[in-house]
């Protein structure tokens, strides 16, 4: 084993961690911006709901790798695109990854939120309306905060999946954690030391993210006093990381 080569390039790996985290956070944030209107329009069958449904179906129904390839190599092929206003963004691998990951995360998040909106107790909305809140106020002050709370555990999974999904960035020249691992492997013609180091880093980050979500859930879902929340609490005491069934990725 040649882990001295890995340690020799610890600064590269540190940079990789930064790139991975940065990409994950941006994709999740932009994904949420897409998911909010998309989930509302799906849950309420508005005029735009066929569009939202189509978007969610396509992005959840195909691999993230192919979506990224299509946006990076596929669009770059056309002069029409290269002459357009969007090119300064699409020219950069970084922005292509951000666009692909955001659209992907937006689709999954929209589906999670749609489910949470659908299960909102009628009484919550009726109560808010009885207090004289306007339709918009009911939506943004009552319905969405309540739905987002209930979506927290599932959204925690989405965060982990997006974190893991960012490895795709390494196939379009981005030096994320895996990208650095591959570069170090290729530079020294070694087989797996770079991958093993990358795996360890991803694992540590995943643990931190899962722990953070556990804390946030305990804070915001306490009032629900749900059986599964207390079950989760005991999980965290034993340091157990439960594996959730992924939401169709």
């Amino acid at each position: 084993m040649n882990f001295d080569l890995v340690f020799k390039h610890w600064d590269l790996f540190l940079g990789g961690v930064w790139v991975t985290l940065h990409l994950t956070v941006i994709a999740l944030a932009l994904g949420m911006l897409i998911a909010l209107p998309a989930s509302l329009s799906m849950a309420r069958n508005t005029r735009f709901s066929p569009l939202a449904r189509g978007y969610v179906y396509v992005f959840r129904g195909t691999p993230l790798l192919v979506q990224t390839y299509l946006i990076y190599y596929g669009l770059g092929q056309f002069e029409l695109v290269r002459d357009s206003f969007a090119w300064p963004l699409l020219r950069e691998a970084w922005w292509c990854a951000v666009i692909a990951f955001s659209l992907n995360s937006g689709a999954y998040t929209a589906e999670i939120l749609r489910g949470a909106i659908k299960t909102t107790p009628k009484g919550e909305i009726e109560g808010a309306m009885a207090l004289g809140l306007s339709g918009r106020q009911v939506t943004w002050l009552v319905l969405m905060p309540s739905a987002m709370r209930r979506a927290l555990p599932q959204y925690g999974n989405e965060v982990v999946f997006m974190l893991h999904g960012t490895v795709v960035a390494s196939v379009i020249t981005i030096q994320d954690i895996l990208g650095v691992g591959r570069t170090v492997n290729a530079k020294y013609y070694i087989a797996y030391e770079g991958f093993l180091s990358a795996a360890a880093l991803y694992m540590i980050i995943t643990f931190v993210v899962v722990r953070l979500f556990r804390l946030v859930e305990q804070r915001y879902l306490k009032h629900l006093n749900l059986e599964n929340v207390s079950a989760r609490k005991s999980d965290s005491e034993t340091g157990e990381v439960p594996v959730a069934v992924p939401a169709m990725r």
Binding site: V160, L163, H164, G165, V167, V168, S170, L178, G181, R182, A191, Y192, F195, L196, A198, A199, Y202, M203, T206, F207, V210, E240, V241, P242, V243
Partner: peptide, 26 residues
């Protein structure tokens, strides 16, 4: 079983595939 599910939960699929293909052969 716990170690198994924890590793899978912690490591991205592509990293695991690369590890198994190259490291697994070793």
């Amino acid at each position: 079983a716990q170690v198994y599910t924890t590793i899978v939960r912690g490591v991205p699929d592509l990293v695991l595939i690369l590890l198994i293909y190259f490291g697994g052969q070793r």
